[in-house]
Amino acid sequence: MNNRTTEQASLYDHLEKMSTGELLKNINNEDKKVPLAVEKALPQIEIVVDKVVEKISKHNGRLFYIGAGTSGRLGVLDASECPPTFGVSHNLVIGLIAGGDKALRKAVENAEDDTEQAWKDLQEFSISKNDVLVGIAASGTTPYVIGGIKAARENGLITGCITNNAGSPLSEASEFPIEVVVGPEFVTGSTRMKSGTAQKLVLNMLSTAVMIKLGRIKGNKMVDMQLSNKKLVGRGELMLMEELKISQHMASTLLEEYKSVRKVLEIFKNKPEK
Rank of each mutant, 00 (worst) to 15 (best):
P35T: 05
R73F: 03
T85N: 03
A103C: 09
A209R: 12
I146H: 00
D78N: 08
C161A: 12
S89E: 14
E154F: 02
M205Y: 07
I136Q: 01
I267V: 15
T141I: 08
E273L: 11
K263Y: 08
G189T: 06
V223Q: 04
K271S: 13
L133T: 03
V88Y: 03
E237N: 14
K58S: 15
V223Y: 02
F64E: 09
T197W: 03
H249P: 02
P43M: 08
L23P: 04
K129R: 09
A151W: 00
C82F: 07
G69I: 04
E81T: 07
N204P: 07
N270Y: 15
H14L: 10
K17A: 12
C82W: 02
T115L: 00
E242R: 13
E7C: 11
E179K: 04
N229G: 08
L157W: 04
I158C: 13
L74G: 05
E179Q: 13
I94C: 08
K231W: 12
K200S: 11
G87H: 09
K129V: 01
A111K: 00
G75T: 00
A137D: 04
K106Y: 12
L240G: 02
D114N: 14
E112D: 03
A98V: 04
G196D: 05
A151F: 01
K51H: 11
M250S: 13
L122W: 06
M18C: 07
Q44T: 05
V187L: 15
L254D: 10
M205E: 06
F125N: 15
V210F: 09
F186Y: 15
E116Q: 00
N60Q: 15
L36N: 14
A68L: 02
M211D: 07
M193W: 02
V38Q: 04
E172M: 10
Q8M: 14
G156R: 14
F86S: 09
G236Y: 05
R4H: 10
K17R: 12
A107M: 13
V180N: 10
E257P: 03
N204R: 06
I56K: 08
T85A: 05
E116M: 00
T142S: 10
I56D: 09
F176S: 12
G135M: 01
G87R: 08
E172W: 01
E185Y: 07
I246L: 09
G156L: 13
V182T: 14
S139H: 05
E185D: 12
I45F: 06
Q123R: 09
S171E: 04
I162Q: 04
T6S: 07
D121C: 00
H59R: 13
V88P: 08
E112Q: 02
A209Q: 12
T163M: 14
N29Y: 06
F86T: 01
T70P: 02
E16C: 03
V233T: 10
T188Q: 10
A118W: 00
N220F: 09
R105Q: 09
A79Y: 11
P35S: 09
I45R: 07
G87E: 07
E154N: 13
T142C: 02
D131K: 08
G67T: 06
S89Q: 12
E273D: 10
L122Q: 07
Q248C: 08
K269L: 15
T85E: 07
D31A: 07
Q8P: 01
A251K: 06
L133P: 00
L238N: 12
V53Q: 07
R216W: 10
E116V: 01
I162P: 08
S252A: 15
S128P: 06
S128V: 04
E242V: 12
S260E: 11
T85G: 05
G21V: 01
V38S: 04
Y258S: 08
